[in-house]
Design a protein around this nucleic acid. Structure first.
Lengths: 187, 187
DNA sequence: AACAGTAGTAATCGGCTGATAACATGTCAA
DNA sequence: TTGACATGTTATCAGCCGATTACTACTGTT
């Protein structure tokens, strides 16, 4: 049900998503969705937490992978983190759930969750991956740009300016973005 | 009415905003809002266009200002653009309308508007401000980060990590962000 | 067997929302 | 004056949505 909710919230947005659509996607009844989570808002809170948790988990995996390779580093940590991030939010459910969280930053319930989640990701990047504040901050910026590009589906645009920008964003590996086009829920 | 709609759409999100709330904010009747714009979606389209238009206009202003100063450049163009951007989206209506547009990137009506708008901003930064593609792209990334920070209201967070990150984002000028806290509609 | 807990559904309801229809008023040209 | 048009309003509706209630079915425990 959480997975279904993530997809539907992402597709439609928090407010526009209906518990009925989520129920249908999960293969259960609408009443059940409402009762199990105690309301639509609580359900979104769970989805939000889960999305943030998946990011920190993915980052810790990338960091561990980076540490396990010998002192010869074919890839810097940042590259591994970036790849992990792109692979993760290629899932449009997670990506758009994130954007919803940001949009709800002033909400008394969602807001604190979003702030704490964003900071927790920053701390992982800075403390666990060992990036300097300036580098960690720049890394987050790139992440936000990736969010936008994927949300707007600019990687599929035929416009040469779009291709130029997207190439710049993903470090030259435009194919990685393109191959993610239309990726939907494995969630 | 457009100004009111921008604020309300921003506060509540596209789907959650009601034509009645917009009407109340604009001081007219709900029916009038619907009829003048031919429906809620059309109204949002106008708001979206206006938001993007204000960004390109502000950027052109900053570029002109930069050109008018002599060949001695106390500030590079990028700094001027950045300041113009921050001043503009301190208006939470514009900021959140932008985020709504991004979230609706897959929408058949809003999607193309968002893509074209984003690219038009990129072109202004690259062609009219004369930034190289890599620099223009990085500039956009920083913009997306600023969006997120302001949406989450991280500039008001008492957390030292938040302060560190925000300081990094705004180029050391944390005061500029802080002073914008709670800025609402001049729109 | 009786009971309790878990997992789930169908039916229904009250409130909200976007849209429509019908009406009121003011302005300006012919 | 009359008519066309812009600028509004009030009243009302048809549909949707989240939530509640009451019910069923299964599983394990004592």
């Amino acid at each position: 049900m959480l997975a279904a909710a993530s997809v539907v919230f992402g597709e439609r947005g928090y407010a526009a998503a209906t518990t009925d659509q989520i129920a249908a996607a999960a293969g259960v009844s609408q009443a059940y969705v409402v009762r199990v989570f105690g309301g639509k808002e609580n359900l979104f809170v769970e989805v939000a937490r889960r999305a943030i948790d998946r990011i920190t988990t993915a980052f810790r995996g990338a960091i561990a992978e980076s540490n396990s390779t010998g002192s010869d580093d074919p890839k810097p940590v940042e590259a591994r983190l970036g790849e992990a991030y792109i692979d993760l939010i290629a899932d449009r459910g997670i990506l758009l759930s994130l954007l919803q969280i940001f949009s709800l930053g002033h909400d008394p319930v969602i807001g604190p969750i979003g702030r704490e989640g964003f900071l927790s990701i920053y701390r992982v990047v800075r403390d666990e991956a060992g990036l300097a504040p300036a580098d960690a901050s720049r890394f987050m910026s790139e992440g936000m740009m990736i969010n936008t590009v994927l949300a707007l589906q600019l990687q599929e645009s035929p416009d040469p300016d779009a291709a130029e920008m997207v190439t710049e964003v993903c470090g030259g590996d435009l194919g990685r973005f393109r191959s993610l086009a239309g990726t939907y829920p494995t969630t």
